[in-house]
Design a protein around this nucleic acid. Sequence first.
DNA 1: GATGAATGAGTTTTCATTCAT
DNA 2: AATGAATGAAAACTCATTCAT
Lengths: 214, 214, 214, 214
Amino acid sequence: MSRDPAEDGRTRRANDRRENRRAEILRAALEVFGRQGYHATSVADILDAAGIARGTFYLYFDGKSPIFLELLDSLLAELRASIVGVETDSASPPIEFQLVSTVRNILDTVVKNRLLARIIVREAVGLDSEAEQRLRAFYAALLRYIELSLVEGRRLGVIRKIDVEVAAMCVLGTIKQFVEQVVVAGEDATFDVDRMALAVLDFNLRGLLAVPSD
Amino acid sequence: MSRDPAEDGRTRRANDRRENRRAEILRAALEVFGRQGYHATSVADILDAAGIARGTFYLYFDGKSPIFLELLDSLLAELRASIVGVETDSASPPIEFQLVSTVRNILDTVVKNRLLARIIVREAVGLDSEAEQRLRAFYAALLRYIELSLVEGRRLGVIRKIDVEVAAMCVLGTIKQFVEQVVVAGEDATFDVDRMALAVLDFNLRGLLAVPSD
Amino acid sequence: MSRDPAEDGRTRRANDRRENRRAEILRAALEVFGRQGYHATSVADILDAAGIARGTFYLYFDGKSPIFLELLDSLLAELRASIVGVETDSASPPIEFQLVSTVRNILDTVVKNRLLARIIVREAVGLDSEAEQRLRAFYAALLRYIELSLVEGRRLGVIRKIDVEVAAMCVLGTIKQFVEQVVVAGEDATFDVDRMALAVLDFNLRGLLAVPSD
Amino acid sequence: MSRDPAEDGRTRRANDRRENRRAEILRAALEVFGRQGYHATSVADILDAAGIARGTFYLYFDGKSPIFLELLDSLLAELRASIVGVETDSASPPIEFQLVSTVRNILDTVVKNRLLARIIVREAVGLDSEAEQRLRAFYAALLRYIELSLVEGRRLGVIRKIDVEVAAMCVLGTIKQFVEQVVVAGEDATFDVDRMALAVLDFNLRGLLAVPSD
DNA sequence: GATGAATGAGTTTTCATTCAT
DNA sequence: AATGAATGAAAACTCATTCAT
């Protein structure tokens, strides 16, 4: 059952090549999906971009929907990682700081993966229900996270008396709008993520009114 | 020469049906588009839902894209109508009131046209470029309207010193999030639009912080 | 069984109207068929040209193919009438004169019915087999007529020793080419039929050679 | 590493089939077009005749019109090749010989490609404008060639004083009539092309009259 | 592993003809 | 007689997926 070292080396090299190939196809798919959207992209487009044959594609992926799902999952994973849990120990940084940090992280991730984010933000539905479900689950989780943060904030007295459900939705809305902005922008636009994160947070924390009557 | 009442009735009923046919098809299309999304819907699906023959559809509409565009336009028109211009005469109601009224109107329209709004919100892209363009134009106009309102607010001293561009985007984001909420909800969910509009506006005006330090 | 005079008058008037309507539709059909050809013309085109409703058309004709067949038949009848039989009595005009007369008549008819001739010459096939058959029969009859004329000419010594079958085909070919010429020409081109008929006949009778060696 | 002969043979045979597939489809298309005409032939008919699936056809051709155009072009190219330029050097064969040779070549080509010629001769119009244009251009070029030949003949004194334009049309007409004859004949008819070419030329050169009066 | 030819179900669209009013 | 809405068969074309080599 055990293979000889020579074989192992060969196998490893083969596996490496396989992984490279896979990554190359993913990269190509990301590019065309990002440029044309999910529906306007045919498998042939991915083939051309990757420079592979029809059959080869199906050697690495089960189809158009699965490869898109994989791209979607990888972005959602990155986004999840960019959201740090709210720490309320006296030792942790203040919640406001944690929030701005999370907002910045999200925007950072989006800016870095603009191509992929574009697909996800702008084609939220009409994919297959699989992709739709995962996206919805992600947003639900994000909303829950924001709500929890707000509840904590209330408990600590930093957040005023407010309907946390409504407030969480508003916060999510402002973030999504900025993601959309990034995503809609041309390929070569640059963003001052720090400034943007601060501005969004400032709006969320202090609102519009000049003389807030609490 | 005169026809009997039964005949007249029959004729009238037939005429009515003929005149309503277009509306019927639109209604059927709205239903399947709303249920399945633009891409997952084939003309055949609309045919089945409307209970008409292939050719009949093309008697009233030029294809799948045009009928969708018509539905889109009708919603956008309603939404546009629901946005009242900002009046800053001393005689007009306060801007805050105007804003809450507009938010309520928008949410009202969305709740009324939930099926249609669902298609539009959730499939913002990947339609044909025609539909995409109109949607984008609509959002751009809405953003402009919000910005103008904020500028007016600043001039009147009711809005604090804030980047109006960023603020406008945040406001739009909060509204869109609520639209999304309405749209995602099941067919039979009910909404307290007044409460929602007030809550959204409260958030936008006053933010989250308990002790706002300006 | 007999109708009263009043009724007869009414019937007659009705019949007249019916005939007028029919003729009007035929005229309209001729125009669009002539302009666009058989296949490129839809029943709707005829309807538009005639200014009638869909159903009305089928009240007068059995369909697109039958109305075309009727137009075809009317041209073929005119063409047949324009071909006078060859008379070889000593009292009749010389055969050469009869031939030039026939050629002139044919070209005349074609020029007069250019629109119709265009359809027939240029869309000889691909109609339905019905039209194809009739056209073929017409040409066969014309060929037979030419052959007979040539046989007569030979008997009278005016035609040289020649394969009449081949010669008849050549003669037919020259005539058809001129018909094609007329037909291809623009709507408003004018033709000197006399000169054309003479030139064609001159060619057919005397050929090209400068010093004919019989 | 080396494959066994059987495999090689199999691979080669497969490659051959692949390479011949296009030609096979062309052949099948030619057959059904020739049998039914352009308009009466659907892509499905070609599919059936070729024994291939829908998609396979579109792998090799862009549609019904393009495949027809390709068949048309191949015949026109052959016909063009069969028309040798007129040489008037003292060293070249006499013009009469050159003409009969060209006529023979044309008829030869037509006889060889009877199926294809049938489509072209009998469905000169009503194709798409593309095919129509090319056919018209071909005939125009042929007419020009004949005219030039006649002008040369006049200059050399072998052609009598005659309207070369009219004469060229007549010559073209006689040739076309023979082409038509070949084309209309059944699949298995045989033709004595030499005899036909000579007879046509004899007619064109010397005409019908027994006692030509120049 | 790689290839790419082949597949065929699925989609859109057209248009001659019918028929209830 | 006239109308024109409705029909549905038929046609062209696409494209994700399979499979023999």
